[in-house]
Design a protein around this nucleic acid. Sequence first.
DNA 1: CCGGTGGATGAACGATCATTCACTAGCGCG
DNA 2: CGCGCTAGTGAATGATCGTTCATCCACCGG
Lengths: 206, 206
Amino acid sequence: MLKDKTSISGQPKADTKQAIERAALSLFAERGYPAVSMREIAERVGIRQGGIYNHFASKQALLVQLMEGHMRALLVALDASVPSGGDPRQRLGEFVRFHVLYHLTQPDDVFIAYMELRSLEPAGLSRLKELRRAYEERLRGILEAGRRLGVFAVTDVPVQAMGLIAMLTGVTTWYRDGGRLSRDEVAEIYVAMAMQSLGVEETPTM
Amino acid sequence: MLKDKTSISGQPKADTKQAIERAALSLFAERGYPAVSMREIAERVGIRQGGIYNHFASKQALLVQLMEGHMRALLVALDASVPSGGDPRQRLGEFVRFHVLYHLTQPDDVFIAYMELRSLEPAGLSRLKELRRAYEERLRGILEAGRRLGVFAVTDVPVQAMGLIAMLTGVTTWYRDGGRLSRDEVAEIYVAMAMQSLGVEETPTM
DNA sequence: CCGGTGGATGAACGATCATTCACTAGCGCG
DNA sequence: CGCGCTAGTGAATGATCGTTCATCCACCGG
């Protein structure tokens, strides 16, 4: 009845948990949280449906874990890539590059984090909204710094920040690997668009 | 058992069909197609679940009707608002204004048309993709015209077109009526952002 | 005034959903 | 060497899903 895997059961390790997360991630991203069943996730992992509950308390807990884990990793990666000080133009360029490349590298995580907010129950929802706000705040800070220094032509910081993020995130809706442009080329195009939209004519040294 | 409504049944008219569409529209937009049941839609309309099938062959047919109807109306409205000739800068302004205001007026239709593509079966999917492509093509045409005339600083027409549309569509994720800005004010901010992102310094008469 | 028809009903269909649970197999530790 | 824990099983739970259907009602044209 069982295959000759090296470990049929027991406690070798818990890479099953990660396998469940990976399977759920791609399925949720592809068809949406409500349209995916626990049976499908289990099948993708290679276990039966009941086995998932050894690692996650519920389908909802699995979703929260995915979204929260992603957002925290995103914030950590952002702060590692974009220093908190320096010339706002340079920081904006780094923010855009980071955002585009991260979104192209992990499109599924990003898509879920932005789209499945409505599938969250109140408890998880408020935590996720706070994380999202913190991320957007990073960009608002850059725009505000540039506005004060007079290097950005900003008419409205909050609106422009949301506009920029939407523009950048939208890259995931059309970009496909192996197409006309490489990821880096696409990122540079978006950097140029962002700069232009803020009236930046020449960037400092870089 | 039945309320004293003016028409309990019979053939007074068929505004029930429109009521079903309206109910399904807001429910699908709010929680997503797979998460909404026919029972909920019927309850919102004030009929029993079986009654929906007098007007729509299936849940899928209802979704297709909503999405296709919206996209066709969107294209008609666009072509009525944005003439096919004239100065590309002016046309771009009109496109942006139209897009933002239409999206703020009918956020549910727009959201469904862009998000529920994955819920479509192959037949409806190809038709919707074609309609979407036609809409995006309008903007690409404007950018290409401006590029040829030398009034737009375009590095890559397709990428910039997708970036613009994503930026504009994103307005639905944050704008709420009664906030700091009116719809028209928001639209003008987006027009300015779009112009700036294309390096337009001064627009013609308007 | 009567027969046909469009529209609504409400019960029922089988399928599938998330979740629970008693059970068991294997491993590490004492 | 055997005890206990981790992890997976497989069947079962009740709920809910989309859809079907026989039935009924109220109106309209002749």
